[in-house]
């Protein structure tokens, strides 16, 4: 039974001719009178048209094997990216108490040192198991926009781009994030983060 405003699935069924004549008439009447339903029908029509433009052909098995083998040929690969580990210079949680304290994470500063320069991260508790991060990257060979990536157990979770002077901001970051990576030009730096005490 079609409701007064059809669901998206009912509109899809209508576009694809899967409804009975009676149901189709009802949907058509609503679509004619209701902007939201008309938008959904127009989107689905456009989707079908675009999908028809590029059906996905399966390549020959021999090609698939060749594509996979490309990775085995070292000459195809760019120079291996080496990630330098950043060293924690100071953590204000430790500086104030001698040991890390959850109570002090409302506003914490972390500073890291690498062979390419330093960076600092201000951590502010945002509630709900999340923090806001504000950072500043200070490279030895001058500032440049860098990619900042947050990871959890090796999986990419968030990304940001620094300003030209090296500042970045990532808000509402889960405290389960445990690694921060910075990539700029040929510099690759990885830092271990400990936000879990927030």
């Amino acid at each position: 039974m079609v409701t007064r405003r059809p669901t998206f699935t009912e509109i899809v069924d209508w576009i694809e001719g899967r409804l009975s004549d009676e149901q189709a008439d009802r949907v058509a009447a609503v679509v004619a009178a209701d902007d939201s339903s008309a938008d959904a029908a127009a989107w689905m029509t456009q989707f079908l048209a675009d999908a028809r433009r590029l059906p996905l052909e399966t390549p020959p098995p021999a090609l698939s094997a060749r594509l996979r083998a490309l990775f085995d040929d070292a000459s195809n690969l760019p120079p291996e990216v080496r990630w330098a580990s950043a060293r924690l210079l100071y953590d204000t949680r430790e500086a104030m108490t001698g040991t890390r304290s959850a109570d002090l994470l409302d506003h914490t500063h972390l500073a890291f040192e690498t062979e390419h320069g330093r960076f600092v991260v201000e951590v502010r508790r945002a509630g709900g198991g999340e923090v806001d991060l504000h950072g500043l990257l200070l490279l030895d060979d001058g500032s440049a926009a860098a990619d900042v990536t947050l990871l959890e157990a090796g999986a990419v979770r968030r990304r940001a781009r620094t300003t030209a002077d090296g500042r970045f901001e990532l808000t509402q970051v889960p405290v389960t994030i445990d690694e921060l990576r910075i990539a700029v030009r040929d510099v690759r730096v990885s830092a271990t983060l400990d936000l879990a005490q927030a």
Partner: peptide
């Protein structure tokens, strides 16, 4: 399949 397809299309939209 039909309802799942509808939900997937809605997400894509």
């Amino acid at each position: 399949i039909g309802p799942l397809r509808g939900r997937c299309l809605e997400k894509l939209r």
